[in-house]
């Protein structure tokens, strides 16, 4: 288990979290390379299916990082995203994958430190949870790309 390197997908809003990631970079703040950032125009664009498919295709954890409450560039995209993440968490609990593999975070463009800490903490949390059970099951089956 010690060699387990989780794959984390982070859907980051262009107006806040993505810029915060930039800020973290320019400040030379360290955060794990496990986190694969996908820039989105607004977290409201992230659908339940995006999150689910990220997990099905091998991610061990997914998070959505949007603007602070009330600060969405498109007024309410972040609240939509929060509701969708809650929905996906429930769905993941129901199928036995576990809702704790998905999270919603809020930060502003200037919060480089928050971005780095969030990425680090979430990666550690998923490392503790272990690999995505769907991927483990698939490896057991020994068949590649089933169903895709």
């Amino acid at each position: 288990m010690e060699s387990f390197q989780p794959v984390i997908v982070a859907f980051c809003c262009h107006y806040c979290a993505y810029t915060a990631a930039d800020m973290a970079g320019s400040k030379r703040l360290h955060y794990p390379a496990n986190v694969k950032i996908i820039r989105v125009p607004c977290t409201g664009k992230v659908s339940a299916l995006h999150i689910m498919e990220a997990l099905r295709k091998g991610a061990d954890g997914v998070y959505v990082a949007g603007c602070l409450d009330g600060d969405c560039h498109f007024r309410s995209g972040n609240t939509c995203a929060t509701k969708r993440v809650a929905y996906v968490k429930k769905l993941l609990d129901e199928i036995g994958i576990g809702g704790e593999r998905v999270e919603m975070f809020a930060m502003s463009a200037g919060m480089g430190e928050v971005f780095a800490r969030t990425a680090t903490d979430f990666t550690e949390k998923i490392r503790d949870l272990g690999p995505n059970p769907a991927r483990v099951g698939l490896d057991k089956l020994g068949c590649v790309g089933a169903g895709a």
């Binding site: 659908s47 339940a48 299916l49 689910m52 498919e53 997990l55 099905r56 769905l91 129901e94 199928i95 036995g96 994958i97 059970p133 769907a134 991927r135 483990v136 099951g137 698939l138 057991k140 089956l141 068949c143 089933a146 169903g147």
Partner: peptide, 24 residues
């Protein structure tokens, strides 16, 4: 279409976890 995709994803993931052959 959206709900079909989501349910498909969920079912596939469930049976992957169970290591049960499943095609949808």
């Amino acid at each position: 279409r959206k709900e079909v995709a989501l349910l498909s994803s969920a079912l596939q993931m469930h049976f992957m976890k169970e290591a049960k052959p499943f095609e949808i």
